[in-house]
Amino acid sequence: MISDRSKRMYIFLLVLTLGAHAAFQGWRTLLNNFAVEVGGLGGFDMGIVQSLREVPGFLALLAVYVLLIVREHRLAALSVGVLGIGVAMTGFMPSTGGIIFATLVMSFGFHYYETMNQSLTLQYFGHTEAPLVLGKLRSFAALTNILVGGIIFAAASFTEYTTMFVCAGAVAVLTGIWAFMQDPTHKEIAPQQKKLFLRKRYWLFYALTFLSGGRRQIFVAFAVFLLVEKFGYSVQEVTILFVLNNVINWYVNPIIGRAVNRFGERKVLSLEYGALVLVFTAYALTDSPLVAGALYVLDNIFFNFAIAVRTFYQKIADPGDIASGMAMGFTINHIAAVFIPAMGGLAWLADYRAVFAAAAVMAAVSLVLVQKIDSQVAKNAHSG
């Protein structure tokens, strides 16, 4: 149950999550087909786009300095508005350079919002509340994605890409304006560090975050592109896949939050990483469009288990380290993400299977490292 004093923050984050995901899902659903059909982009071009998309994530560490002049909840609202502007711009720029520019604007908004969202969640909700809140927010995000997918599926046959991008972006802009006028904070939260740091005792969080960034970006950059280029998925078929994925996630995400509380982060993340070794290996081997689509859904389900990495950090971090730690975590997550899609684009030209094999290796390394979680939590409890 969410405490009364935190309900205003929960509602604030929920509304921002709905607006942000409505815009981002619209962009994500349309981008690959727009890039291929209108912009004429190839695999290498998309690798460059996806690599540059992660530069704002790498620069998420600068959010700590922005917080010197803007409060966290205000920055969250502004970021969602910027996300919407970037999405709306995309449809007017059907070229590699244009898509890169609009993507950078969108990405700055998305990554700064996600940094603030995670920071505020870990600050305002306790160790047992946070997994449930993260699970619920992801569930509502999935429900939003279903609605967006249904609208795009219905409109794609008679609506231009430009109009769909503008409509998706407008939702986020209006949400950001509403949120900027709200103040869901209270004074019982520990003051946050307004500087960057790397602490030795957080090393496992940093390592898991780094590997997650590299592995996830291979999926984001190339999984849907594989479906479109190799298996010929249309925009309607991609939309159906997204809707199916989000129907499952809408149901599963709250269960994941409860599972983190019941079984602990180590077991939940072990299941995720073990499954992803198999999923990415299968991506490299399959020649079936149906199997590839099923693997896409499975990967998205297991991606949601990543909330356990954040709740693990919450358990070992000093209360005042949350905001700076989330900003640093986003930057570490995107160190690999900045260059891996571009490298993957080059590897794709030789053999696309090598791209997914690399992701399987990263998942295997994560599986080994995650076995140390319980000892890290126990060590922190002892030192505390």
Rank of each mutant, 00 (worst) to 15 (best):
I218V: 14
I218F: 03
I218N: 01
F219I: 03
F219A: 03
F219V: 04
V220Y: 15
V220P: 01
A221N: 08
A221V: 11
A223H: 07
L226R: 11
L226K: 11
L227H: 09
L227F: 12
L227Q: 11
V228R: 12
V228Q: 14
V228Y: 15
E229L: 14
E229V: 15
F231I: 09
F231Y: 14
F231H: 12
F231N: 05
F231D: 07
G232W: 12
S234V: 14
S234D: 15
S234W: 15
V235L: 14
V235P: 06
Q236S: 10
Q236W: 08
Q236H: 11
Q236M: 06
Q236D: 08
Q236L: 05
E237L: 09
V238T: 09
V238I: 14
T239Y: 05
T239D: 04
I240D: 08
I240C: 09
F242W: 13
F242L: 13
V243E: 00
L244R: 02
L244V: 05
N245A: 10
N245W: 00
N246Q: 04
N246E: 02
N246P: 03
N246M: 02
V247H: 00
V247W: 00
N249V: 00
N249G: 02
N249M: 11
W250L: 06
W250T: 03
Y251P: 00
V252C: 04
V252H: 04
V252Y: 07
V252A: 07
N253P: 09
N253F: 08
P254I: 03
I255A: 08
I255R: 09
G257Q: 05
A259T: 11
A259W: 14
V260K: 10
N261E: 11
N261G: 13
R262S: 06
G264V: 08
E265Y: 09
R266T: 15
R266N: 13
R266P: 11
R266M: 14
K267N: 13
K267T: 13
K267L: 12
K267Q: 13
L269N: 13
L269G: 12
S270K: 02
S270F: 10
L271V: 15
L271G: 14
E272Q: 15
G274A: 08
G274I: 11
G274M: 07
G274N: 07
L276R: 08
L276D: 05
V277I: 15
V277H: 02
L278D: 00
L278T: 02
V279N: 01
F280K: 03
T281W: 04
A282I: 05
Y283M: 07
L285Q: 02
L285D: 01
L285V: 02
T286G: 00
T286N: 01
D287R: 07
S288Q: 02
P289M: 07
L290V: 11
V291L: 04
V291W: 00
V291I: 10
V291C: 01
